[in-house]
Structures are given as structure tokens and as C-alpha cells.
């Protein structure tokens, strides 16, 4: 295959721009990143700067990777991270426009690499159950409805990649926050801190500069783990409940 790549290049605080590369000998069985690896190898050999992009497990679970390809977060496939995207999803001769996640809360570090530590700060503001090591009761002491456990799991599958923010026209992080809130809301272990967790995480989310949700549903459609927007609706409810009931 031959691919025409328009890729975003940007380094330290400078204004970025697109750079075009024409790549030949792309195999259909290559992953998208293996295609970038190959390009980078050539770039280095030709004394050019390789393209920086974030990636690690390449199994679709660590949440490190993520670029926007032709206007779609994580590329054209549904429920797939960029690292699991293979070149057979494209046609010979395609032009691919590759950009980093764009959101004011995610500053660009270099080329396609962005800083997502805002997510960690939101988590820090309450995304945990305060339990000390060693003080836990027996795991079967509190039975949990299977449905509740399954729902908690569905929310917990979030890999924190940031595609929801990247795909949202408002750069809203409601899906990310909603998923975490709901994981704990479903489980008896999270209940004591639940009201303050909801308030604190929403406050932190606003402080980090994420936009508000206008229920367009773009986040759900681009989420590689297909997390439902129901998490946002539930977050609204919990927030309303625990702000008024304070």
C-alpha cells in the first residue's frame, strides 16, 4: 500500500504545522503505529527528527496511545484504540490527517504527545475509596448483586485515554468523571465518601478547564471501551442529589 500522511509536528511551545510524508511499501498487516515506526526509522536515517507519539502496551489497554485520524479519535473503527488499528482499515493511496488530542486541558508536549495529567488531578480529588492496607474485612463479607458488580465493571473499563475529551466539541471530561463516579456508586464500599467524591471531582474537573456537556454523545461514539453516556446522566443525578442534600 501507499499512504499519504499529513501529520502534525510541534515542539516546545512553538506553533505547530502539518508535515506531509509519502510512504510506500506499507503492508496491510502492519498496525498504524508500526507504519509510524517504519517512517521514523527512515526519518532518523535521513537525519530528520522522528515523529513523537505516545504508546506503550500496544494491546489496547494501557490508555497511553491516541491520535485523531481524519477527524476521528483513535481512527475510523469503533471500540478500538489507535494501537490496535491496522493498515488494512485504509485503502491504498489514502491520505491520512493525523493530529494530537486537542483540548485546552491537554497541552501538546511534542508532535502527537499530549499532557493528560489533568485526569490524574481529577482522580486525586476523590477517585478512590479511603481504605488502609490490611484493615479490610473478608472479601465475601458484603455480598454485591451481580448486576451491580457488572455495571460497576462496565464503568471501570475506562482506560483514561482522553478520546472522550478529544472528540467532544466542548472538550468535556464528563464521560471520564462519570465512569469513575459510577464505578464507586454501584458498590457498597464506595458509599461513605460518595457525596464528597462527586462534589470534589466535579469541582476539580471545572478547575482543570474542561468544557461542559451538551449531550451530543460524541464521547460515547469515540470511546475505545464503548463506555455509555448513561454514566454522564447518572453523574448529573448524583451531583444534583449530593449538592442539594448537603
Amino acid at each position: 500500500m501507499k499512504i499519504n500522511l499529513k501529520v502534525w509536528r510541534q515542539s516546545n511551545n512553538l506553533k505547530g504545522q502539518f508535515e506531509e510524508h509519502y510512504i510506500e511499501n506499507v503492508s496491510e498487516d502492519m498496525s498504524f503505529f508500526e507504519m509510524l515506526d517504519m517512517l521514523n526509522n527512515t526519518l532518523i536515517e535521513q537525519n530528520h527528527e522522528p515523529i513523537a507519539f505516545d504508546h506503550d502496551c500496544r494491546e489496547g489497554i494501557c490508555g497511553t496511545c491516541g491520535v485523531v485520524i481524519n477527524g476521528k479519535a483513535h481512527g475510523p473503527l469503533k471500540g478500538v484504540t489507535t494501537c490496535q488499528l491496522h493498515m488494512r482499515s485504509f485503502e491504498d493511496g489514502d491520505t491520512l490527517v493525523v493530529e494530537p488530542w486537542r483540548a485546552p486541558s491537554f497541552s501538546i508536549i511534542k508532535d502527537l504527545v499530549v499532557d493528560r495529567t489533568a485526569f490524574d488531578r481529577i482522580m486525586e480529588s476523590g477517585g478512590y475509596v479511603s481504605v488502609k492496607t490490611g484493615g479490610a474485612p473478608d472479601a465475601n463479607a458484603i455480598p454485591i448483586f451481580k448486576e451491580d458488580a457488572d455495571q460497576a465493571f462496565d464503568s471501570a473499563t475506562c482506560i483514561g485515554c482522553g478520546a472522550c475529551v478529544a472528540a467532544c466539541k466542548n472538550s468535556s471530561a464528563m464521560l471520564f468523571v462519570g465512569a469513575k463516579i459510577n464505578q464507586y456508586a454501584q458498590l457498597p464500599q464506595g458509599q461513605v465518601e460518595h457525596p464528597s467524591r462527586v462534589r470534589n471531582m466535579v469541582t476539580q474537573m471545572d478547575e482543570e478547564g474542561f468544557g461542559s456537556c451538551t449531550n451530543t454523545g460524541a464521547c460515547e461514539a469515540e470511546c475505545p471501551k464503548e463506555i455509555s453516556v448513561e454514566n454522564i446522566i447518572k453523574l448529573n443525578k448524583e451531583y444534583l442529589k449530593h449538592s442539594l442534600g448537603k
Partner: peptide, 9 residues
């Protein structure tokens, strides 16, 4: 479990 890890049930 106390930390809220959603193990299968």
C-alpha cells in the same frame, strides 16, 4: 474488594 475493584460475582 475494599478498594472497589469490581471482581466477577
Amino acid at each position: 474488594v475494599a478498594q472497589g475493584v469490581p471482581f466477577a460475582r
